[in-house]
Amino acid sequence: MTTPATPATTATATAAAPVPPAAVHPRPVGRGRVATAYRWEVTKLAAQARTRATLAVCLLAPFVFVVLLDRQDRLPKDTLYGRWVHASGFATPLLILGFAAQWVFPLLTSLVAGDIFASEDQHGTWKTILTRSHSRSQIFWAKTLAAATFTTAVLTVLALSCLTAGVLLVGHQPLESLSGTLLPPGRAAGLVLAAWATALPPLLGFTALGIMLSVLTRSSPAGIVGPIILGLLMQLYAFLNGADTIRHLLLVTPFDAWHGLLAAHPYYGPLRDGTFVSVGYLVLCLAVAYTALRRRDITGG
């Protein structure tokens, strides 16, 4: 039996009509489609209760933390700036910064980054998205930018909230630098914000790590918990005084880079090295995730 597949058969059944030269509504092209997909992803994130709850916690938790600290007689003296939390409101955000680096930052970023790709697998919505004139590359970069936006938003809200809580509830007394000199309030506020800003590169590194796990595992729990566990393992390695070379390559090490800013004679080496390490994680994780998503067989989802 032969295969009778010739266009002529259908042409006789229905006369072909002229095709309009263009769609009625012009649609964006190239980077415009990444921007469209980015807005779509951000709108979707904003509609999720988890996203809003996370930002609300970042906004309110520092105030609760400061109130609880204020009621305690014993100070967390074993933590950097712990002994000064009653002396200056600028010490509070630095204390929280040191604490958050241990596991809070990886948790906050991976809540979105670890879920942002896997949730499409969970809901089976990949085909819904990819049948709407958007390529995998465009969706990948849109989602990555959205996750990075959330990370930046979380860090910004948390930093401003910590600073506000410290200043409002403790006061704006001068802050003692790590070298023992007193920093006036204006300078202290600037350094506190700069210290928080140094957490952005490693946080983006953790975001990329969450994205990679989200793409590879297609599982939201794995994407969310994975970066936290890896972060804790890195903390453990650093705590055990492992080899310096490896310790410098850990993604948690750059979280301490702000110490150099609070010295009487600031040093920026750790900040520079930490940024390189963070960028390394960022590029490597995104490259793996991008390649995996491009090669993925979108069938079930």
């Binding site: 769609a23 009625v24 509504h25 012009p26 649609r27 964006p28 469209t36 997909a37 807005r39 779509w40 709108t43 979707k44 509609a47 819904t128 998205i129 709407r132 004139s133 958007h134």
Partner: peptide, 15 residues
């Protein structure tokens, strides 16, 4: 409706 809103945002144009 919210789902359609999202998809309309992805489509652009007058969706």
């Amino acid at each position: 409706r919210r789902n359609l809103n999202l998809l309309a945002g992805l489509d652009g144009g007058g969706a």
